[in-house]
């Protein structure tokens, strides 16, 4: 739990301390396993950015979009064109499964690359895709007790490692 608190504090700190240009972005990202809202800050005079996101996931035992995740994606634009760019970032965060069988708060790390296409003359809107790899797993224990029997077992909660998401962004 101590690790979690420190991690959360650091995630927030890194975003708050970033100095922003005008073109920040709010985006909605969709994949088979997660639906996320993200806020991205672009750092002044550099291609570097950092975004924080929060979302819902469906990766635990009940397969419902009722898990919560949040994280940060520090990264940079590798190649910029007039109406598009190619970017890459690290991805780190925490996944909270939500079910009645186990408690397995799971930190994760990953790496993503993506392509963003701006829409319109003022580049206020954009569509982008991201793909990447993520690693996060956590062991958990289950216990059952009755008058005649005590049962305990362990198992592993593992995040699906491949990410592929589609997103819409509003730039301001």
């Amino acid at each position: 739990m101590k690790h979690l608190r420190i991690t959360v504090a650091l995630l927030l700190f890194s975003v708050i301390t970033g100095k922003a240009q005008n073109n920040n972005r709010i985006s909605a990202e969709f994949s088979g396993n997660n639906i996320c809202l993200a806020y991205q800050l672009n750092f002044e005079k550099t291609p570097v950015y950092s975004s924080v996101y929060v979302g819902l996931g469906n990766q635990d035992i009940n397969s419902k979009f009722d898990d919560v995740l949040f994280g940060i994606k520090p990264g940079m634009q590798f190649i910029s064109f007039a109406k598009s760019n190619i970017f890459g970032h690290l991805n780190a965060g925490i996944y909270f499964p939500n079910n009645k069988y186990y408690d397995a708060v799971t930190p994760f790390v990953g790496i993503n690359i993506g392509y963003e296409k701006f829409l319109g003359k003022q580049k206020k809107h954009s569509l982008f895709i991201e793909t990447g790899y993520i690693y996060g797993q956590r062991e958990y224990m289950q216990i059952y007790e009755s008058d005649i029997l005590y049962v305990s077992s362990t198992d592993k909660f593992k995040l699906f490692p491949v990410i592929f998401s589609l997103a819409y962004g509003f730039n301001f």
């Binding site: 930190p107 690693y135 062991e139």
Partner: peptide, 23 residues
């Protein structure tokens, strides 16, 4: 900024290597 990112990665990796549940 770089230091922040590095710290985040270190702490997350530490958190990922969480203790194994043993029966």
């Amino acid at each position: 900024m770089k230091a922040n990112i590095l710290l985040i990665i270190i702490f997350l990796l530490t958190a990922c290597s969480c203790e194994k549940e043993i029966l």
